[in-house]
Computed example of a mutant assay.
Amino acid sequence: MTQRMILNETAWFGAGSLRHLPEEVRRRGMRKALIVTDKALAAAGVLKRVTDLLTAHQLAWAVYDAVVPNPTIRTVQQGVAAFREAGADYLIAVGGGSPQDTSKAIGIIITNPEFEDVRSLEGVAPTRYPAVPIIALPTTAGTAAEVTINYVITDEENRRKFVCVDPHSIPKVAIIDAEMMVTMPASLRAATGIDALTHAIEGYLTRNAWAMTDMLHLKAIRIISQSLRGAVAGELESAEQMALGQYVAGMGFSNVGLGLVHGMAHPLGAFYNVPHGVANAILLPQVMAWNAPCTGEKYRHIAHAMGVKQADSLPLAQARDAAVNAVRQLCHDVGIPRSLREVGLQEADIPALAQAALDDVCTGGNPRTPDLAAVMALYRQS
């Protein structure tokens, strides 16, 4: 069997690493950026930190700030038009997963215009050319979109989210600066942090996992479980650790896939516009408990990584319970909603949600094979 790993060309880490942005632009001979972000980040002053730095180094830029949570086909198409109108030759993605994913889709379409309908990018699209260069500046410690080959777009017309998997979409440069993350609300830091934990756990359990990604995912689980509480409380050192942990998780799952938690979370975003991290966080303990019989010794290793005492000596059933309970406790400690009803789940929608989850590309990697009845039951239990 052969395995593949795709990572960024360059990544910078640490508080204050934003200062390396101008040198990365100049080193590549790029002329004008389209900065892709949202209006909330512009209003919060996060965008200004980037534009002031570019201006101080006499680097040209324009802004597209119409990105919305769970970005839509229309959001992408408007961004493509903005890129062309600006005369840009590269993208700077400033924000969480939504600006990052929007930038990937824009960048791919600019160099592969035959995919301008956006829908045809679903799955593993046969794009011929790499996206225009993307420099990713994440402001949340969760999605790891800055190091993945995946992105997710919402089809509002059909009430669905679709996953695109394309090695051509990975950003050239990632700058993971915790100072760009600590200004986010505590609730957002919590939700995106559990999203990162979900990436690490599902990446560790997925059918395609192998030795290198296991190493990355277990390390990410350890870092995230030790630092998320402090990061939510606003501690810069913990925020730096979270920024690292979520990136390490991204290095792994981008190359091996995820599982049913993500498969079930995507339809919730499409139906109710539920923030992706919140959906993952509510679903993760329930799906973990359901998956447990098909995970071998892996829950023991998860429990150990999350600091469960004597996890190595517990009977297997107890070790599995301990791993699930450790995740539940962390979600509780950082204030994650307890139920999908709190975020708008309607009983009448469950059959359609479950079918969409089964059809989602992430679900195929789940260690236990679900059917429609099982997924419907998991939505109800959650």
Results as ranks from 00 to 15, higher is better:
Ile194Glu: 01
Arg128Tyr: 07
Thr10Ser: 09
His20Ala: 12
Asp359Gly: 02
Ala178Asn: 05
Ile135Ala: 01
Ile108Tyr: 05
Asp117Met: 06
Pro275Leu: 04
Phe271Thr: 08
Asp52Gly: 03
Leu268Asp: 14
Ala348Cys: 06
Tyr204Leu: 15
Ala265Lys: 08
Ile92Glu: 04
His217Met: 13
Asn208Pro: 00
Gln310Arg: 14
Trp290Val: 04
Val68Arg: 12
Asp155Val: 11
Asp89Cys: 10
Leu53Thr: 05
Thr369Pro: 00
Met288Arg: 03
Asp155Gln: 10
Leu378Gln: 02
Arg159Tyr: 12
Ser382Ile: 01
Ala191His: 06
Gly263Val: 04
Asn70Tyr: 02
Ala82Tyr: 09
Phe13His: 12
Ser238Glu: 10
Leu260Ala: 09
Val361Asn: 04
Arg338Met: 09
Ala40Leu: 05
Arg320Asn: 08
Ser225Gly: 15
Pro126Thr: 12
Thr2Asn: 06
His57Leu: 03
Phe162Gly: 04
Gly234Thr: 11
Gly257Ile: 02
Pro99Gly: 07
Ala357Gln: 07
Asp177Met: 08
Trp290Met: 02
Asn150Pro: 00
Thr148Asn: 08
Leu358Met: 10
Arg368Gln: 04
Arg341Pro: 08
Asp321Pro: 00
Ala289Phe: 03
Asp38Tyr: 08
Arg328Ala: 14
Ala373Arg: 14
Ile108Pro: 00
Gln3Glu: 14
Ala145Gly: 15
Ala303Arg: 01
Arg119Thr: 14
Ala211Glu: 12
Ala178Leu: 06
Glu85Ala: 15
Asp89Pro: 13
Ala200His: 03
Ile336Lys: 10
Leu54Ala: 07
Ser225Tyr: 11
Glu240Phe: 05
Ala125Gly: 01
His262Lys: 10
Asp166Trp: 01
Ala86His: 00
His168Gln: 14
Asn70Lys: 00
Glu240Lys: 09
Arg49Ile: 05
Ile134Cys: 02
Leu34Phe: 07
Ser339Ala: 15
Thr2Tyr: 03
Glu157Cys: 02
Lys39Ala: 15
Val248Thr: 13
Leu330Tyr: 10
Thr213Arg: 07
His332Glu: 15
Gly252Lys: 12
Ile221Pro: 06
Ile336Leu: 13
Ala311Gln: 05
Ala42Leu: 05
Leu121Phe: 12
Val147Ile: 10
Ala42Phe: 00
Gly234Ala: 09
Ala88Arg: 00
Lys219Met: 13
Leu41Phe: 08
Thr139Arg: 02
Tyr204His: 09
Lys172Leu: 12
Gly296Ser: 11
Gln346Trp: 05
Gly307Gln: 05
Phe83Glu: 07
Phe271Cys: 01
Gly245Ser: 04
Pro285Leu: 14
Gln355Glu: 09
Ala357Pro: 07
Asp360Tyr: 06
Asn291Ser: 07
Met30Ala: 12
Ile224Gln: 08
His262Asn: 11
Ala303Trp: 02
Arg328Ile: 14
Ile6Gln: 07
Gly16Ala: 09
Ile109Cys: 13
Ile149Ser: 13
Ser169Thr: 11
Ser227Phe: 02
Val132Phe: 10
His168Lys: 13
Leu372Val: 10
Ala279Glu: 09
Leu283Glu: 11
Val308Tyr: 07
